[in-house]
Simulated assay, not measured.
Amino acid sequence: MPAFLPDLPVILGFAVAAFALAITPGPDLALFVSRTMHWGRGHGFATVLGAYSGIAVHTMLVAFGISVLIIAAPAAFFALKILGALYLVWLAVQAIRDGGGLLVPRAAGKQPSWGQSYLTGLGINLTNPKVALFFVTFLPQFVSASDPHAPGKLIFLGGEFILVSLPVVIGAVLFAEWLTRTLKEKAWVGRALNWSFAAVFMAFAATILLAEGRR
């Protein structure tokens, strides 16, 4: 067995945890769905690719110990949370403003490039405290600090997270595409969905800011 492979019970246990995180509603999943409903399946998958690039970054940070600096410096981690909250507020504004909504296409709206959708997915993942906390605090629980092969095992687990959660987000994008085709004829549905996604982003932002305000 290659040295970078964790034991089978570890692989299976981590797969369960990864699946649980993947199906938990969050700003990243909401963004995948909303981008698909507004600009189409290609932009949904571009956003997914951006988010999973962020997961690769989180994995590498944990594997090589850089993320420990964030935990050791509470001010830096606090700044990351605030940045993430502000980014969600910006996405909420984009969801309801003319020409910049996330759901139903409008004639006056300027369609972003796939690169812009990719960067949006990357940004929301890198500034999402839920993802950062998962990788910084939970991922290392599956390896021993004294294990000389710990970095390789952490990278393997990061790849496993992608493989386990990818079918969930692909299913979400395809469902969003089907839902758009079904409901796009009704203008009020589009407006309601735009406001719904704006509310989701604002709720996550408020949760982050209020949690930090109590400390």
Rank of each mutant, 00 (worst) to 15 (best):
L12V: 14
V93Q: 10
H38F: 00
A73R: 00
L122M: 12
R191W: 07
Y52T: 05
G100Q: 08
W188T: 11
A108F: 01
G65W: 10
L49Y: 09
P112G: 08
I82G: 06
V10C: 11
T24D: 02
A107N: 07
G42D: 12
R181F: 05
H58D: 06
F64S: 05
N194F: 00
R214I: 12
Q116I: 10
D28P: 01
V16I: 15
R97Q: 10
A192V: 11
W39D: 11
W90C: 06
I96G: 05
L31W: 03
Q116Y: 07
L88C: 06
I170M: 14
S146F: 08
A211D: 15
L69F: 13
P167D: 10
A30E: 02
S117K: 01
A51M: 07
M1N: 09
F45M: 13
D98E: 15
K184R: 14
A172N: 09
F156G: 05
T24V: 10
N125W: 03
T137G: 03
R215A: 13
I155M: 15
A17V: 12
V57S: 06
G65T: 04
F135M: 02
G26A: 06
A203F: 13
N128L: 07
S146K: 08
F135R: 00
A211S: 15
L21I: 12
G115M: 11
G152S: 09
K186I: 10
L183E: 00
S117D: 09
V131K: 00
P129R: 01
P2S: 10
G101L: 04
V143I: 15
Q116R: 15
K184V: 08
A198R: 02
A63M: 08
L8Y: 10
G121T: 02
L21S: 10
T36E: 08
G159T: 01
T127N: 04
A75I: 11
T182K: 15
L8I: 14
L126T: 00
A75W: 14
L102S: 07
G99H: 07
P25R: 04
A199C: 10
S53N: 04
L193T: 02
A3P: 06
L5C: 10
Y52Q: 14
L91E: 04
R215V: 09
I170E: 05
A107E: 13
R215E: 08
T180L: 05
G115V: 08
T24G: 09
G42Y: 03
G65F: 11
N125R: 02
T47S: 15
V93G: 09
V33W: 01
F64L: 12
V164C: 13
F161W: 10
L174D: 02
A150P: 07
V89W: 13
V10T: 15
F135Y: 12
A205T: 03
L139D: 02
A63R: 03
V16K: 04
